[in-house]
Design a protein around this nucleic acid. Structure first.
Length: 226
DNA sequence: AACACCATCAACCGCGGAAAA
DNA sequence: GTTTTCCGCGGTTGATGGTGT
């Protein structure tokens, strides 16, 4: 019944990783590749749980991890994405090559929050602090489930921005994000086209330039092109 | 120099969903 | 169909270094 136990939790190290542990993990993954975190520690001769190995590799040891300060461009992109997605760090990280969710989360909490506050913007709602209303951050962000599903199914996010119908690279934050039915509802698609719907990812400069104006599927606040 | 406070960030914890038995 | 574990995620903590008094 069920799977075998994950790891021998009684015999695992905790705390900061040593240089030797790092080297062992790197050597093992270079030889065998990523994956099967459960069996990795034993196979690599590490007294760590698989979860800890995964975290260490993904956040610090992976060769494509970008270290060092965030650029202003990265900051602005994070702010824009956060205003639309909320604390969906992994989804935001997927749009910043070389940055990890943990990295972005830390950077948000230590730098960007303060940056926004100094501009008089609430980091939760992305609205001017003196205009705060009963709007809650959760009112305007997508559920994790919806977003992950969109990514899984290769759908795209589309935003409808009445104030900016031409779709500038970074639309203003008063986006009206909405959900439309799937392509089986052509009238909705025509309506979207008439309103010059701008692809969410394209509008942020996040995609590779493919058009995505047809077959939109809108769920909750954002729409996804089929 | 010693101490307190603050900022940063690596790492852990707990949870939910997916997958395996 | 149920139970158990794995995986990935977001929230939080704690160690460390820097700065101010």
């Amino acid at each position: 019944m069920g799977r075998s136990p994950c790891c021998e939790k009684g015999h695992t190290n905790k705390g900061a990783w040593t240089r030797e542990e790092d080297e062992r993990l790197i050597a093992y993954i270079q030889a065998h590749g990523e994956g099967c975190w459960r069996s990795l520690p034993k196979a690599a001769g590490l007294l760590r749980c698989g979860k800890s190995c995964r975290l260490r590799w993904i956040n610090y040891l992976r060769p494509d991890v970008k270290r060092g300060n965030f650029t202003d461009e990265e900051d602005e992109l994070i702010i824009k994405l956060h205003s639309l997605l909320g604390n969906k760090w992994s989804i935001i990280a997927a749009r910043l090559p070389g940055r990890t969710d943990n990295d972005i989360k830390n950077h948000w909490n230590t730098h960007i929050k303060r940056k926004l506050l100094s501009r008089g913007i609430d980091p939760l709602t992305h609205r001017p602090i003196n205009e705060q209303t009963a709007i809650h951050s959760t009112d305007k962000v997508l559920s994790t489930k919806v977003l992950r599903e969109a990514v899984k199914t290769n759908n795209e996010l589309t935003c409808i921005n009445h104030s900016n119908p031409e779709g500038e690279k970074y639309p203003e934050l008063n986006l009206e994000l909405r959900i439309s039915p799937p392509s089986s509802h052509p009238s909705q698609i025509v309506e979207k086209r008439d309103r010059r719907v701008t692809c969410f990812y394209c509008s942020l400069g996040l995609r590779n330039g493919k058009g995505c104006t047809s077959g939109a599927v809108e769920v909750e606040h954002l729409s996804f092109c089929a």
